[in-house]
Design a protein around this nucleic acid. Structure first.
Lengths: 151, 151
DNA sequence: GTATATTTGTAGCTAATGCTAATTTTTTTA
DNA sequence: TAAAAAAATTAGCATTAGCTACAAATATAC
């Protein structure tokens, strides 16, 4: 039977597996980063980060937030006291800083590329966690470089 | 006390929530897409897609694959028979096609941007699922457009 | 200061992704 | 063809992310 076309060998399997594993690892951290980013924003804006405000920004119920926050506390990113505002630890602040920086780079990059601002923001939310440092540098270069879309 | 700096209002909360919700939705589909893509590749290359090969490419145990495959079958993306190769349904093939197309665009885009091939592939794995159609179009434009890095 | 409203927390559920260990089926090899 | 090897399945566990419903604490209003 004519089975076994053996078309193009796209990528090496191990490399592919590595890619998927990296994606999985990214997933593990990205939700935490999102929370920390939101908490950081709220602290900047209101001086406190309440469960219900976090919930509103992330689009989940307050219960989900409470649960996640306790995991973040376990992992040393935030401090909590019952019925009190959530605050960031030093580590949490550092994660927030890097996260926000990366987010901004991705947004700027997409905007410069011609993506509408709203879409840029939404897409950045998803993309930012999957960008390696090499790619991030490339993004930065592109944003800085003035000679790009120069018709 | 001097609390309440009220710095920059970055994004509207509802918009931000929407972004996070979209990211969550993307997560729900992206693993399925990864599997379908891998299965499609294996079918092209060997005429069959075995559990152990899928496991090797994705980097998980064969048990995890078996479980996920049964969910994919439930969702109408693949067909399975015990101890036999997995095949794609029409829907599965369509998903694979679109997925691969998107993947390729992202890879080409990153490469054109100056990201090394290996990193481009790895990053694309994570990024491809979070790219809206608007952004994808922008990527395409950038790849096609010859006047970019033109010094 | 008490009553009401808001906010936070807890209990208990579903579903998905991962794993190891043990079993069963299929394939290969001697 | 019978034994050994390889591959797939099943059972059962842990973790995480969601939810609703209910209880407790805090804040607000009168």
């Amino acid at each position: 039977m004519s089975k076994k076309p053996k078309v193009k060998r796209v990528v090496k399997p191990e490399l592919q597996a590595k890619g998927h594993m990296r994606t999985r690892a990214a997933h593990a951290t990205e939700l935490a980063e999102d929370y920390v980013e939101v908490i950081s924003d709220l602290l900047d804006e209101h001086g406190e980060a309440r469960v219900s405000d976090i919930a509103a920004r992330i689009g989940v119920t307050h219960v989900t937030v409470t649960k996640k926050v306790s995991l973040l506390a376990r992992d040393g990113l935030v401090t909590t006291k019952p019925y009190r505002s959530i605050f960031l630890t030093d580590l949490g602040r550092e994660v927030a800083r890097r996260s926000r920086e990366r987010h901004q780079i991705v947004v700027d990059f997409l905007v410069k590329l011609g993506v509408p601002k709203d879409a840029a923001h939404t897409d950045a939310e998803g993309i930012e966690h999957h960008v390696s440092s090499v790619t991030l540098e490339a993004f930065k270069r592109f944003v800085k470089d003035e000679v790009n879309g120069a018709s």
